[in-house]
Nucleic acid binder design. Structure first.
Lengths: 303, 303
DNA sequence: TAAATTTACTAAAACGTTTTAGTAAATTAA
DNA sequence: TTAATTTACTAAAACGTTTTAGTAAATTTA
């Protein structure tokens, strides 16, 4: 036991001399960093920006810092980011993944680094995952259209090949099936991720010209924004003849006239769950069992 | 000179053995990191999210990585972030600063670290700054109100004490003065930064109840969003009797019915300028003179 | 050709911590 | 009381690079 007097004396010297441990040296020796790496699709998408902010906040309160970077759904960039985080010895990884980086993530897992996937799952990997129930959410959205008497329901989605997007598509199809509506592939528009907005808008416009179309579900918030812009440009109102549901809430939805219904993911809960999983793993000496946590998304009906 | 044969042989071994230099060890020895630290107010604000994304993109193309974190206008957190970046040996700092961290930034300057302030200036510091001309932008916005015949023009702003916000206020006052309109402090609402949105909305509602109010300039995008929400809730239309101008464009502005005019900062240009300044300094052996670059903001009139 | 300089290479030191090893002193067990 | 163990402290090794120092060989200069 060291006497209080000595402890105080040493602490005083630390403060007086302004000593700050060199974290780089510390990381070199210990191999960790108190930093968690967060890899997302695009920080300028408000869904990711909000979740990043929440994660950052929660991690910060527990003594961890977050560093984040966007992949733009570019496999090369994603690989490089993982490489960079690895070389910076981040303690854990939170990743909104894309198809094609399974191997890189598997290496992290092999090295026993805590990895949490979120928003999108990579089913071939055995790892932690936190995400919303997109299948059910999408099903409910379409169901609500049908209950309003809609017959020709469009789905505007993206072409990225990830679980989350596929589920939204499946939910859409299942709802049509269950309620005896035909699946019409002309009513499904898959927009390439990195496509110029102008081109996407033209495609959406084309879709809206489809006679009889009386409802549309958008699979991401930026697509819904594009859709609303197109409608405005076409001077077509969102009214009894045309219902819209968006995905991942956005200020513009509530503010729109009329307000736009949306599928809202519980951001707060997702962020909290992610952080809890990470911290549990970081503070445990043994490898904890992987968990797949599916959180219900909520259909917010506005009018 | 080393023979090509040897170079090839060595490179082959590097690849075959999967050698990846340990960046931590490298940073420990060299004192730098090829990482640029970006400190902003709040990553979930779309203005910052967009600029972060642009900066990240441009830096990435030049071989630098960006790590960013939000201060939430909390001085303590800002100081800690600077401390963290310092201890991680980032090569340069891009900071959207707040009052109260002048000393910490001065220390960075004393250590000859490249520092670029953006969006907000700290006039007491002699350093690089890149930002929009908020005074002029704000002046023009009010001027455009006046030319529409508006007499009772409100300003909804925040209470944070930074150059950028002060300039917006000054532009507002100057325009009133130049056009012979009285300055009425009841028409200026300063909303505390971290205040609950519900309370802010009440204050804004109160402001809108002010009889005769026929125009309002909002000094930030999130305040304008709040304002529009309040109007919607009050069922008051934005029409000939009430004009609105926002700040820092937002999808919701264009999409709003009617579309909302706004002051748009040239994000692309700001990001590019910041990166250029940083890289110029990083690649120069000598200390370059500090530059204060003011970029015009643009008033986008919509209707 | 001899001296001076440059080049090529090897070995060791340095960056600033944490961890391990080693030793003396203090405590506990027999 | 003596041996065994624990505690307190000091010194050195280790993390993986880059930089510096040192030496021998090669080249240039006079």
């Amino acid at each position: 036991a060291i006497s209080d007097a000595v402890i105080k004396k040493v602490q005083k010297i630390i403060i007086d001399s302004g000593y700050k441990p060199n974290q780089i040296a510390r990381s070199l020796r210990t191999g960790n960093s108190n930093i968690i790496g967060l890899i997302i699709e695009d920080i300028s998408n408000s869904f990711f920006a909000k979740i990043a902010r929440l994660i950052e906040d929660k991690a910060y309160k527990r003594g961890y810092k977050i560093i984040y970077s966007s992949t733009e759904n570019n496999i090369e960039k994603a690989k490089e980011l993982i490489e960079m985080f690895k070389s910076r010895k981040v303690d854990a990884y939170i990743i909104s993944p894309i198809k094609g980086i399974e191997d890189d993530i598997q290496i992290l897992l092999d090295e026993n680094k805590p990895v949490i996937l979120f928003d999108r799952n990579l089913p071939t990997l055995n790892t932690n995952y936190v995400g919303a129930n997109h299948f059910v959410a999408s099903y409910q959205a379409v169901e609500s259209f049908i209950k309003q008497g809609k017959k020709n329901i469009a789905l505007v989605t993206t072409d990225i090949d990830v679980q989350q997007i596929i589920e939204r598509f499946e939910g859409y199809k299942k709802a049509l099936l269950d309620y005896g509506l035909p699946f019409n592939k002309d009513l499904v528009l898959k927009i390439p991720f990195n496509q110029e907005e102008i081109i996407s808008n033209k495609q959406i416009k084309q879709l809206f010209k489809n006679q009889g179309l009386d409802a549309a579900l958008f699979a991401t918030n930026y697509l819904a924004i594009s859709g609303l812009k197109v409608l405005k440009q076409m001077d077509r109102k969102v009214d009894k003849t045309l219902a819209i549901i968006g995905y991942d809430d956005h200020e513009a939805f509530e503010l729109h006239t009329p307000s736009i219904s949306t599928i809202q993911q519980p951001l707060e809960q997702i962020a909290e769950t992610i952080i809890k999983l990470i911290l549990a793993q970081l503070s445990s000496k043994t490898k904890l069992p992987n968990q797949q946590i599916i959180i219900p998304a909520k259909l917010i009906l506005r009018n």
